[in-house]
């Protein structure tokens, strides 16, 4: 099985490019998973067009990229008979993008969206960078942009892609076909930033004392739950559960695995 992760900021043309790439991969059995924060219809569009299995993963209160890293093993397990798993990230964070070493990491990069040097791992850790919307600016600027990209993503191969015409889709499909099979433990290409403050546990008041208090309470509770993200409490992740407990929306006993639980 192969796995490819598409990352890129909203509006960079990820879904459009993926559709053209899938056109070139019709001989493979594919599962497609779209991660997003609030809502998405992309999985339905792709299901209708290609008649393959698709799903959406809505992260809600937690970082969609952390959520993706949590969910990827489950997706792999469920679809291990497929030739290829395509993951499309929400693309909100330039820092977290959940690229894995074993698969192929593709950054769909909107040429109009700022300097390459201000992108983090989303760009710098990509194996392949597909530059979109290049048709809107001059060739000279496209060339300059390309060399700027190479300065921060030295080992990436670069493809000029277009979500309207399908330009570049053949090259991306070729790279996917040549990418290695994933096996064994999957590892992230880079560590994601730690979530270590009261705001991560849902604090809204801008006050360092209250934030610290909320953090301590959250941390204390986190140590007592298994962090399996099993979902038995009704929340997608343990972090969401903790926030709800701190907000007094739900009792901590709702977690079936809570340490030191009464009864």
């Amino acid at each position: 099985m192969k796995m490819v992760i598409f990352g890129g900021t909203p509006g960079s043309g990820k879904t459009s490019v993926i559709k053209f790439v899938m056109q070139e991969l019709k001989d493979l059995s594919i599962h497609y998973a779209k991660f997003d924060v609030l809502t998405t219809e992309d999985h339905l569009l792709i299901k209708d067009k290609f008649e393959i299995s698709t799903e959406k993963k809505i992260s809600g209160e937690i970082c969609p990229d952390h959520y993706a890293a949590l969910e990827i093993p489950k997706i792999v397990e469920k679809h291990k008979n497929k030739d290829l798993i395509i993951i499309e990230t929400a693309g909100l964070c330039l820092r977290c993008s959940p690229y894995i070493n074993e698969g192929l990491a593709i950054n769909i990069l909107n040429i109009l969206a700022g300097k390459p040097s201000s992108y983090g791992p989303l760009l710098t850790h990509a194996d392949l960078v597909a530059i979109t919307k290049g048709d809107l600016i001059s060739q000279a600027e496209r060339e300059i942009f390309r060399s700027e990209v190479l300065k921060v993503a030295r080992n990436a191969s670069i493809i000029e892609a277009n979500g309207l015409t399908g330009e570049g889709a053949i090259d991306i499909a070729e790279a996917i076909k040549e990418s290695p099979e994933i096996k064994g433990k999957l590892t992230l290409k880079h560590s994601m930033p730690t979530a270590v403050c009261g705001y991560c546990y849902g604090n809204k008041t801008i006050d360092s004392e209250k934030t610290l208090k909320r953090y301590s309470l959250g941390k204390e509770l986190k140590a007592r739950i298994p962090n399996l993200n099993c979902g038995k409490c009704g929340f997608k992740s343990c972090n969401e559960f903790i926030r709800a407990v701190l907000d007094k929306k739900v009792n901590e006993d709702t977690c079936p695995y809570l340490e030191g639980k009464k009864g």
């Binding site: 109009l112 048709d135 809107l136 600016i137 001059s138 060739q139 000279a140 600027e141 060339e143 060399s147």
Partner: peptide, 27 residues
Amino acid sequence: IGYLTQHMNFMTDTTVQNFLEIHIMTR
């Protein structure tokens, strides 16, 4: 192969001279 596309908008906030110099370097 050089490509002159329909659209020729610029997005870099710089002078004509500086822009051409950067392109000359890139090339």
